[in-house]
């Protein structure tokens, strides 16, 4: 029974740290809005069994280059966001 966690704040905010405390094997984390600024930090310390995604449009808007992200984090567009919601049993938004 996996969970999609969305994060929409930079890593200085407790949204990221709190999410990381409760994300478990099989879950996914999707960075949206200002959450995409946390992409590089999240790549450096990936959680075991937790898939990482960042929203393509929000990366582009902020001048963040998706191609520089390591392979541990995938980019998805809004259609991919919708798919992720459907693929997980529930969605938790950390803000």
């Amino acid at each position: 029974m996996s969970t999609l966690h969305t994060i929409n704040k930079t890593s200085t905010h407790s949204a990221l740290s709190s999410c990381l405390k409760v994300a478990r094997n099989g879950d996914s984390i999707l960075l949206i809005e200002d959450g995409v600024y946390a992409s590089s930090q999240l790549c450096q310390s990936p959680l075991e069994g937790v898939a990482l995604y960042a929203l393509h449009e929000d990366l582009l808007a902020r001048g963040l280059d998706a191609s520089t992200l390591s392979g541990t984090i995938k980019t998805v567009d809004y259609n991919g966001f919708v798919d992720l919601v459907c693929q997980h049993q529930r969605c938790v938004s950390w803000s």
Binding site: N8, I32, D58, Y78, N79, F81, V82, D83
Partner: peptide, 20 residues
């Protein structure tokens, strides 16, 4: 005030376009 409401709109529009 924040991007969140816009994100909700884009998400909703995409979900509908995908047939949900």
């Amino acid at each position: 005030s924040s991007q969140a409401a816009y994100s909700a709109y884009r998400f909703s529009a995409s979900a509908l376009a995908a047939g949900h």
